[in-house]
């Protein structure tokens, strides 16, 4: 099939960007979306131009590197699917596809479709860990974890940190991401000692990075490739409330 692409091109964070149009010819329905872009890029290079820069790595939907908004929807809008796992059979001949980078002030564009997600890093560095030193730990079975808690923690821990939640949110809020991280650790008994501290430090860092606020629109949950539930945002709010009470009472 043949497609028309409208792709955001931008040289670097400082310069203004704009849309460019490309033809994607002879696209096989078996290609993944990113392979389609690979093919287009090969043609662009053949014309002596610079290819469309986009992030991708594992291409099996787990590393969270790929990040593009396809027709207004982060990752293209196939349920529970990253852009790298989206296949061209979902498009039809003659379609025009608009491809844009994640849009958020906290995710400045590096180039074309590549954005800077180090804000996520800093949030996790602020408190997304359990302070254990290598070796100074009890036997793994010394602390039983109820299966329900462990399963729920796993639901949260599935987050691949791609940032689609931020990209989808009209407020560019990172709540779903931070909530997944906070919930995962607060659900595990090992995470209890730092529970209060973690809730404060991660939320504060999230604010500092310039992410927006949650207005409970639910777009984040809808585009999350790991289908992480909005429940975790409520859980994070609860964690934060708990932390406030603890701080207030101490």
């Amino acid at each position: 099939m043949n497609l028309k692409l409208r792709v955001w091109r931008q040289d670097n964070a400082e310069e203004a960007g704009g849309f460019e149009e490309y033809e994607a010819l002879d696209i096989s329905p078996d290609m993944s979306f990113l392979e389609m872009l690979d093919v287009v890029n090969e043609d662009i290079i053949a014309d002596g131009e610079e290819p469309i820069a986009f992030d991708s790595d594992c291409r099996e939907g787990i590393c969270g590197t790929c990040s593009m908004v396809i027709n207004g929807v982060p990752h293209g809008g196939q349920q529970g699917t990253t852009a790298c796992q989206l296949h061209m059979r979902h498009f039809s001949d003659g379609d025009t596809i608009v491809i844009e980078p994640w849009r958020a002030t906290a995710f400045p564009v590096h180039r074309d479709l590549i954005v800077d997600r180090t804000s996520f890093e800093r949030i996790q560095q602020a408190g997304g860990f359990i302070s254990v030193r290598t070796g100074s730990v009890p036997d793994a079975n010394a602390t039983p974890v109820p299966k329900e808690d462990s399963d729920l923690a796993m639901d949260a821990a599935q987050c691949i940190g791609c940032g689609a939640c931020v990209a989808a949110c009209k407020n560019a809020s990172a709540m779903l991401f931070v909530a997944a991280k906070v919930s995962h650790l607060s659900l595990m008994p090992q995470g209890q000692p730092e529970r209060t501290r973690r809730a404060f430090s991660m939320v504060n860092q999230m604010d500092e990075e310039g992410f927006g606020n949650c207005t409970v629109t639910g777009s984040c949950e809808a585009v999350c490739p790991k289908e992480i539930s909005l429940d975790f945002i409520a859980r994070m709010n609860r964690e934060y409330g708990r932390a406030l009470l603890k701080k207030g009472c101490s």
């Binding site: 409208r6 849309f19 908004v69 396809i70 027709n71 207004g72 929807v73 293209g76 809008g77 196939q78 349920q79 989206l86 979902h90 498009f91 608009v98 491809i99 844009e100 849009r103 958020a104 002030t105 906290a106 989808a168 949110c169 009209k170 407020n171 560019a172 809020s173 310039g210 992410f211 927006g212 606020n213 207005t215 639910g218 777009s219 949950e221 809808a222 585009v223």
Partner: peptide, 24 residues
């Protein structure tokens, strides 16, 4: 919120799973 998201998407929301549009 406004400061956090200064750009709007040009693409109109058209998910591949079109039945999910209302969720998105």
């Amino acid at each position: 919120n406004k400061r956090a998201r200064q750009f709007q998407y040009e693409g109109t929301i058209e998910p591949v799973d079109i039945h999910r549009k209302n969720d998105i």
